Simulated scan of single mutants.
Amino acid sequence: MIKRIFLTLFLSSILLSGCQKKAVQLPLIDIPGISEIQNHSSIWIFMETNNGATSAKLNKNNKILNTHWIFNIDRRLTMGQVVPLLIEMQENRNKDSMHKKEGMKNYFSYADSATEKISLIPFPQTSFIMETTNDKNRIMAPCTVILEIWGEQIKINNEFLPLDSLPATLKSDYSCNPEDELTILLTYDPQTSYQDYLKVKAFLVLNEINCASVEYVYTVK
């Protein structure tokens, strides 16, 4: 039987099944996403606390290689904690296997706070580059705009902006040659919350703004 998920009537927390139930607090985002998907399995990244220190714990026991993967990640985690696990799972996905099926994709899940339903956005193959500083001399494709995530704000060309002003800013301040597509290059500090990161990603998907397949994680001092 094909597994189908109808993403409806969930709260902001969902439980990981198993001998010991653990809660994953999904990001709360007021942005519509994908509400239904067939043939899927789940990957869980939850927050664990030990003596006041938090860490990200991966549970991939329910994943099936020849299905779409849904990443359920706790919003309280930082990108510095989440990114190494995303890299690990992408490498796992790309391994050669007789069970591998073409066309299977990855998705991030979140709670749509407007509808009180669970939504998904695509998680395409992404190269995460971990740096110690912001390399302003990195080589980029034509018509690429660097967008830095700063909490609930974004920063473009040293100017802080609210996220919802991004489409108008790109239209008024940036133009591309006909053969080039305007592309956003995401950069963020390891302490950036997964909640803030996914909100930006969901906004870009909603507004059909192209996002580069490379993201830079660097420490802001």
Rank of each mutant, 00 (worst) to 15 (best):
K3C: 10
F10N: 15
S12P: 00
I14N: 05
L16V: 11
L16N: 13
S17F: 09
G18I: 04
K21Y: 06
K21M: 14
K22F: 06
V24Q: 01
Q25M: 13
L26P: 02
I29H: 06
I29T: 05
I29R: 01
D30F: 03
S35F: 05
I37V: 04
I37M: 01
I37H: 06
Q38M: 10
S42R: 12
S42M: 14
S42W: 15
I43Q: 02
I45N: 00
M47N: 15
N50I: 11
A56D: 05
N61C: 01
N61Q: 10
N61V: 06
L65M: 02
N66A: 10
T67Y: 09
T67K: 02
F71W: 14
F71L: 07
I73V: 09
R76M: 09
T78F: 00
T78A: 02
M79L: 02
M79V: 03
Q81H: 03
V82P: 04
V82W: 05
V83T: 14
P84N: 08
L86D: 04
N92Y: 15
R93E: 12
R93T: 12
D96A: 06
S97F: 07
M98G: 10
M98Y: 11
K100C: 01
K101Y: 06
E102T: 08
G103N: 06
G103S: 00
G103R: 02
N106M: 14
Y107Q: 08
F108G: 10
S109N: 07
Y110V: 03
S113C: 00
A114Y: 10
T115P: 01
K117I: 04
K117W: 06
K117G: 05
L120W: 04
I121N: 00
I121T: 03
P124H: 08
Q125Y: 08
S127V: 15
S127D: 14
I129L: 13
E131S: 13
E131D: 02
T133C: 07
N134M: 08
N134V: 09
K136G: 07
K136V: 13
R138L: 13
R138Y: 04
R138A: 11
R138V: 09
M140R: 06
P142L: 00
P142F: 04
V145H: 00
I146T: 09
I146Q: 08
L147V: 09
L147S: 08
W150V: 12
G151Y: 00
E152A: 13
Q153R: 12
Q153Y: 10
I154R: 01
K155E: 07
N157D: 15
N157C: 00
N158D: 08
N158S: 11
E159T: 13
L163N: 08
D164C: 11
L166A: 01
L170C: 02
Y174H: 02
S175F: 12
N177G: 11
P178D: 03
D180P: 06
D180Y: 02
L185W: 13
L185Y: 12
T187D: 07
Y188F: 15
D189T: 00
Q191T: 12
T192M: 05
D196V: 09
K199G: 01
V200S: 06
V200Y: 01
A202E: 07
L206H: 11
C211V: 13
Y216D: 09
V217I: 15
V217N: 06
T219V: 14
V220T: 15
